[in-house]
Design a protein around this nucleic acid. Sequence first.
DNA 1: AATAAATTTTAGACTCGCCTAAATTTTATT
DNA 2: AATAAAATTTAGGCGAGTCTAAAATTTATT
Lengths: 220, 220
Amino acid sequence: MQNSFTEENYLKIIHSLSGRDGAEVSTNALAEGTATRAASVTDMLRKLADKGLINYKKYQGVTLTELGEKVAIKVIRKHRLWEVFLVEKLGFGWDEVHDIAEELEHIPSEILVEKLDTFLGHPRFDPHGDPIPDAKGNLTEPDYLVLTDVQLGEKVRMMGVLDHAPSFLQHLDRSGITLGSLIEVVEINEYDKSASVQINGGQTLFISLEVSKNLLVQRR
Amino acid sequence: MQNSFTEENYLKIIHSLSGRDGAEVSTNALAEGTATRAASVTDMLRKLADKGLINYKKYQGVTLTELGEKVAIKVIRKHRLWEVFLVEKLGFGWDEVHDIAEELEHIPSEILVEKLDTFLGHPRFDPHGDPIPDAKGNLTEPDYLVLTDVQLGEKVRMMGVLDHAPSFLQHLDRSGITLGSLIEVVEINEYDKSASVQINGGQTLFISLEVSKNLLVQRR
DNA sequence: AATAAATTTTAGACTCGCCTAAATTTTATT
DNA sequence: AATAAAATTTAGGCGAGTCTAAAATTTATT
Ligand SMILES: [Mn+2]
Ligand SMILES: [Mn+2]
Ligand SMILES: [Mn+2]
Ligand SMILES: [Mn+2]
């Protein structure tokens, strides 16, 4: 039995909202994430539960079953591989690929995914720094920290983003911050938690808390 | 207003059944082509007519409007470009790509198509020899002939296939006939119209009428 | 603990694409 | 021209996925 686009999208969102600890996801959170009404979410949850893809008890929120997790990770793998394709091969910007990948991720065909993966050289990360699950379904989230957790004077490397919105990514582009950039925190303003950072040992840049909260970085 | 997968598939099939002369297509032919019932076709025809994509008068059959033709050709362009991608870049066989392209052809995004086209080097023909419409929507069908129309002793070049079924394409693979092969008709059996042909000046091959009817070739 | 607020589910309805069975229209045959 | 056959449309219905409004349940506040 095949899963529909809609079902796959639900599974992906449950996975993402559930976090690494597999916490329960609320109906309202899903309504928000799928841009539908809570009543529609409830309908879909009953269906996903019937298919054995989620654990669902009324009013209790949901978690993915083993099967649901497997399906979700497959979709995520496809999404991120297609994003790599779009950026690396077709020359799209990292701010342009999300919506297109949102469609491509639902193309069935295991062979297609594996051939694409090979064609791309088995990339480990997508253009936003997100890890790509391997063919067996293993997904290991590297434990990056958010830039707000970095102390004054520390040097870190930019590894990913939490916000994938084009506007945010374009803002980073204009600021000259890309994946791999070296970031040194040279000043933190106590009042609004804004900061000054030096990028790649060169230009110094002013960064708002909003931006800091969405930058994933790695120490050393 | 966007067109659904289903609507796009109908337009594509109408285009194909309508032929180069834009002849009327019957409800039953469409039921056959879409693997649905005639009643369902009628429903869809009313919708496509309301959207201005087809000319439809009850009991009279349908033709594409200018707009419908434009949309159909866009889908065909995408289908064929994706097929080129699958064969040229991912290493699929020409017998494996149709169903996947049938899905990929519905991914929206004009930019995607154009970037894909550029990436592929603006191919003129797909892996089955079918012409790829250009970005402006011009589609020129080369006038090939079917192998059954070739006289004894003539040498022709294999340019395409009418049947796209994997089983037929695999049969050609086993026979050593590919796009561009030189075919010389060395014998025609009057009784069943089967033929013997010489491929690329080498191996001589026995070919049934069924095969001949599905091979597109070009003189000289 | 009682009440208010927030969350979630149920009830009933809608569109889309499809179905079967019956009615209508066109085309072919006598 | 009448009748039979084939093609097409209409009528009525179904599942998927969505909606609004109302009811039920859980959580927060008094
Ligand atoms: Mn999606
Ligand atoms: Mn991404
Ligand atoms: Mn299709
Ligand atoms: Mn083709």
